[in-house]
Design a protein around this nucleic acid. Structure first.
Lengths: 347, 347
DNA sequence: GGATATAATTGGAACGTTCCAAATATGTCA
DNA sequence: TGACATATTTGGAACGTTCCAATTATATCC
């Protein structure tokens, strides 16, 4: 069907110049005469030439491709994170390989290897559960900048961008305490992620600070999903001295908790205070609107991408560790009277 | 930092063979002696060689990269669609550029161009609203296989994979009619997509078939999102002879409709029947569980990817148009007694 | 042992760019 | 006009692989 690709040489020939000149035009070099540039550009348009970035990469040994690996794209927090990255990556003239590891370290290893073979200039990784520093060591050793987001990867020599889970959880619990709650639960998640550990730590410390003893029975583990939230409520109903409010691992769990409450006849926000974490888009429009710790995933994705691009351009590989601030957005699900939209701000 | 990349020549040198032999080993050719193969492989492992697929692509003029462009990754239907594609693409040894067009045709054009420069072997496109056949013409003309999913692109010479929107909508409305409803609304969406048109057509035809006159006042346009669903209910409350049930453009709208109903004191599934479309994961765990037309986005993504890979391998570019079947999953939100999970099946 | 078949290996050109050093054109000055 | 500076253009090597045709090693047969 299509004859062999038109190349820079074809352009050169048709425009009556050398391929070097065409290359110069392609790169927008100021060295080339205005008339020549016009001529070349018009020929390019005529022949429907498409630049072969692969060939250029081969010669230059640096590509305009970044790799992004996300543990769970079906979770809207991560989907939005990815969209944030997409925005700045595209705008900078890069494209991204974007893959979903599905929390499988094996799959993650495979896609990282594959991306590496395909010549990425850098990578953003939101690690699958159970990822170890060793998993990305070869990547790093080869001098490719890596930014780790959302979940920490202790021991890895990389830049990281985490949200301030500890402070956020603390603020949420403080808010529940201020509303008069004393039986406050923590729902969703398992011990295996740093995110869980930090949020739980914030929860514990806030209770302690308020002089409320931590009741381990109120810490209910479950899958970090909507279904997990439903399950957590079911489990909670079995204990005698039940909670009257809960901080949830994330918004998905919080929505599940609302569902679960409703199915046992409790109205979230009235009979029971629910606070989520992440502030995904639906949090605002849900009924009741979800009180949650806002992480702005899209903004976080943007920052991560900016950080990566900076490192790519700098060439140097000094690591940088950023913590994005977080704020409690009070809506209806916690049962507090809504005074204004962003009641509490935290640095 | 890192010295220049180790190449196939370095391997050859260290293993005492020629680069051609190394290349043969890399490709798993049966031509090479078992002992030589072992030797070469061990050297490869020792030197930490990483294959440069870009160089190979340059020589072979066919890559192992596919492009995927999705109109809205933050919509979980599309996120799951993408995950389905990711699964089969990865397993086939390909990587994907995955980009989010955010319903912007400009952005979409840019990323398509960028992916093309980066040498994709094929592309799956879930077009942004307003995309025209002309937008992807150059891609197609260059002989790159394209599969269009979810939304139709009339006039484009491509393979398509659509869900059976018409039949699905019809089945949903029939079900509502069977439950005794006569005032049935259609909520969410605008006239500008084929998906909307088809589902609406199914709605109209089913009503007509049942001898119920279509009341244009019950067709309420709104954004195809959760917030849009809330808005649609608000609008619906203003009319005198209100609907008692509604088919929603998609699950997001349906959730919004449930939210909206609740905030005016109507319990979805009791006072009002709600049916969604798509069957996203949360549909099952929501309260009330959402009756919806199941599209299995992940499965659809897989099929799309399989179709694309088939076309890439075939080389031939005969188009194929598939319609994925769809089935009504009756849960609680429509108010029907749940007899078993998949009450109605449709081919 | 020589001829022939088969197995295994190999050098060099090619893919489409960029980059360098060198060449050529154009302008300026005395 | 010659000397010099500056603006513009250019050929060829290089990037890391694959592929072809050709070569060399090994086995098989009479």
């Amino acid at each position: 069907m299509s004859r062999s690709r038109t190349t820079v040489v074809d352009i050169a020939h048709a425009a009556g110049v050398s391929k070097s000149t065409v290359s110069l035009v392609l790169q927008g070099s100021p060295l080339v005469n205005e008339k020549t540039r016009e001529k070349v550009n018009s020929v390019i348009a005529d022949l429907g030439y498409v630049y072969n970035r692969g060939a250029a990469n081969l010669r230059q040994a640096r590509s305009k491709i970044v790799g992004i690996v996300v543990n769970d794209l079906t979770n809207s927090f991560f989907a939005e994170l990815a969209v944030g990255m997409d925005m700045v990556v595209q705008s900078a003239g890069y494209v991204q390989f974007l893959a979903h590891s599905g929390e499988s370290v094996d799959r993650q290893r495979e896609v990282i290897a594959s991306m590496r073979e395909n010549g990425i200039a850098g990578m953003i990784l939101s690690p699958a559960r159970g990822t170890e520093a060793a998993d990305i060591k070869p990547l790093i050793d080869s001098g490719i900048p890596v930014v780790v987001v959302v979940r920490n990867l202790p021991g890895a020599k990389v830049s990281t961008l985490l949200s301030d889970n500890y402070t956020g959880a603390k603020a949420a619990v403080r808010h529940l305490v201020a509303l008069g709650h004393t039986r406050i639960g923590f729902m969703g998640g398992f011990l295996d992620t740093a995110v869980f550990a930090e949020r739980l730590r914030g929860y514990r410390d806030a209770l302690q600070e308020a002089g409320i003893a931590v009741d381990e029975a109120l810490i209910i583990h479950s899958a970090p999903s909507r279904a997990g939230g439903v399950a957590a409520v079911e489990r909670m109903m079995l204990i005698s001295d039940r909670a009257t409010a809960a901080l949830c691992l994330n918004d998905a769990v919080a929505f599940g908790v609302c569902d679960g409450l409703r199915s046992v006849g409790i109205e979230p926000g009235k009979g029971f205070g629910v606070i989520g974490f992440d502030d995904v888009i639906e949090a605002k429009t849900a009924v009741p609107a979800l009180t949650t710790v806002s992480v702005d995933p899209q903004g976080m994705g943007q920052r991560a991408a900016q950080l990566l691009l900076k490192q790519i351009n700098a060439g140097g590989n000094e690591q940088e560790s950023l913590v994005t601030s977080v704020r409690l957005v009070v809506r209806q699900s916690c049962g507090a009277p809504v005074r204004n939209n962003h009641l509490e701000e935290m640095a």
